[in-house]
């Protein structure tokens, strides 16, 4: 991999890129996402984010042969509002083309039953892509702590992967305001229910500061094929819509900020109050960007949103 280019004296800090890739024909004439179109959408997003002509070149910047990759999905919303199966398959395909062995890829969330209800096929052992929940391997016995959080971590994270690809869903949350990239890490810890007071703030930011998570995180691929603007985190079909998009970034704060704005626009369109007016503005995003965390930026002047 190329070394970082030396900074130019006096140059402004580089903007965080958030790529929004859309395909209005993602589902063809039906309701199911077309696998080939999903792969093409993923490629377009990755090529744009990494400024590469070919998808493989983009993925090679993230993983090397021998890496063990955890694809952390979100399966809480069942079949209606979980990380899209075709997207996850496309990710796994591109990872293998970049040199990662199938058996070294694990698609995971906290609970195997939830994964199955979301449509994932469980697989543990063998040479194929793995797919199971933390319930199969348990959490580490020892606590890790940062700021206000102290938790045990999934052994999938600590023992089965050195690279983490985050695949959250774009949706609102009744406590935090929104649940996108940063909150998807609640699925890594054993006690997420302890970290919901006060709009999950500062807990979401503190969880993402845990070194075991931060050191592994490479990329967020937010599934906005079906998104939800109200009633989350559970699936409420009456409040979901088909955005047919992916949000991709290496800055999870910038991605959450951008996703939040998308949700607010949809809420306004539907005549709903802002999250702020409902007393659940996602303040955790600002905390994640603050001097004590620096997980990314929530300053729109420093976010380059590129729509393709």
């Amino acid at each position: 991999m190329e070394l970082l280019a030396p900074a130019q004296p006096g140059a402004p800090p580089a903007k965080s890129k958030v790529v929004i890739a859309r395909d209005d024909l993602l589902r063809g004439t039906g309701s199911t996402v077309d696998s080939r179109r999903m792969l093409a959408l993923l490629d377009r997003a990755m090529q744009t984010l990494f400024d590469r002509d070919h998808a493989n070149e983009a993925w090679s910047r993230l993983v090397r042969p021998g890496d063990k990759v955890g694809v952390k999905v979100n399966a809480l919303g069942g079949r209606g509002l979980s990380s899209n199966l075709q997207l996850v398959e496309a990710i796994c395909e591109r990872l293998q083309e970049a040199g990662t062995k199938a058996g070294d890829i694990v698609v995971w969330d906290r609970d195997s039953d939830e994964l199955e209800r979301a449509g994932f096929h469980l697989s543990m052992g063998g040479n194929g892509v793995q797919c199971f929940g933390t319930d199969r391997v348990d959490y580490e016995q020892e606590l890790v702590a940062y700021g206000s959080v102290g938790s045990r971590l999934s052994r999938i994270l600590t023992q089965r992967c050195n690279v983490l690809i985050n695949v959250p869903v774009l949706k609102d949350h009744d406590g935090a305001g929104v649940t996108i990239a940063l909150k998807n890490m609640y699925g890594v810890i054993h006690n997420p229910n302890k970290y919901h007071p006060n709009g999950c703030n500062p807990y979401i930011a503190d969880v993402n500061m845990l070194p075991e998570i931060r050191s592994r995180m490479r990329l967020t691929l937010c599934d906005a094929t079906t998104a939800q603007y109200e009633g989350g985190p559970a699936y409420k079909p009456e409040y979901s819509w088909k955005e047919n998009a992916l949000l991709v970034s290496q800055d999870p704060v910038a991605l959450d900020y951008t996703g939040w704005r998308i949700i607010e626009r949809k809420r306004a369109e539907k005549g709903l109050k802002t999250l702020e007016a409902e007393g659940r503005a996602p303040h955790y995003i600002a905390t994640a960007a603050d001097a004590g965390h620096r997980l990314g930026t929530n300053d729109p002047r420093r976010i380059a949103v590129i729509e393709v």
Binding site: L76, N193, G231, G232, P233
Partner: peptide, 8 residues
Amino acid sequence: GDRERGYC
């Protein structure tokens, strides 16, 4: 909310 648990 639906499918969620309390703090406990």
